[in-house]
């Protein structure tokens, strides 16, 4: 009994890894969503430079907010593609019919999206630093932790609702309307922490409260999604 249980857990890890590898490979071969997301992030950064004076001290104060708006918008492009990519040739039906639990499919896709969105963030962060003359790397590791925590929250919610909207006619319209309000607690926490981190403040005191909010958000929405994804995909 113990043995089968263990093998079960191992095979789930294997299932997640297969889906993760498949999604990542498919994306890296075409780079459709990745390129679109990156150039979109650049365009928004450019637009912000007209809205705010990039050289002023004030811009440093709102840097956290700017960055996360860019990431949330650019990330949605990747999340939107995640399940749409499976529509041609009925790949989605094939995936759902595969003998794996729906939540492993979901986790695999979430992990792939997480890596892709994080990559977009890590590439656009130095570009942001150059454009806006911000020395962002002073608290590099803490910043990376906040990026990872928030991005996981965003991708879990995004992948879940990408699965939910994939069969709608107006999915490109519905996805942002559904996910941004749900993401707000995570985005708010990330903005509150990222701003001070970029200006070089260490991760302590009040900032830790926001990190705790991020961890709570991740735990709650990961478990909700894992519990409900079977209903969304299979019925």
């Amino acid at each position: 009994m113990q043995q089968t249980k263990q093998r079960g857990a191992m095979s789930w890890v294997g299932d997640v890894a297969v889906i993760f590898g498949k999604d990542l490979r498919a994306e890296l071969r075409t780079k459709e969503a990745l390129n679109a997301s990156l150039s979109f992030a650049l365009v928004i950064l450019l637009l912000f430079s007209f809205a705010f004076d990039p050289s002023s001290e004030q811009t440093h104060d709102i840097a956290g907010g700017l960055l996360w708006i860019v990431y949330a918008f650019a990330g949605t492009l990747i999340l939107n593609r995640s399940f749409v990519r499976e529509l041609p040739n009925d790949c989605l039906d094939g995936l759902i019919a595969a003998p794996i639990p729906a939540w492993t499919l979901f986790l695999g896709k979430s992990l792939a999206n997480f890596v892709l969105v994080l990559a977009v963030e890590l590439i656009s962060l130095p570009i942001f630093g150059i454009f806006y003359n911000v020395r962002w790397a002073q608290q590099g590791w803490a910043l990376l932790l906040v990026l990872a925590l928030t991005t996981w929250g965003l991708t879990v919610v995004g992948t879940m609702f990408s699965a939910l909207t994939v069969n709608l006619r107006i999915r490109e319209l519905m996805l942002p309307i559904l996910i941004y309000p749900i993401m707000i607690p995570a985005l708010l926490g990330a903005m509150e922490v990222t701003g001070p981190l970029i200006t070089g403040k260490p991760l302590e005191g009040d900032l830790l409260t926001w990190v705790r909010l991020l961890v709570g958000f991740d735990i709650i929405f990961t478990s909700l999604s894992v519990a409900l994804v079977e209903t969304v995909l299979v019925g």
């Binding site: 919610v157 559904l178 309000p181 749900i182 929405f221 969304v232």
Partner: peptide, 11 residues
């Protein structure tokens, strides 16, 4: 919409 309703209640 049931799934969304459960997500929304967290807020």
């Amino acid at each position: 919409s049931a799934v969304l309703s459960i997500f929304a209640f967290s807020d």
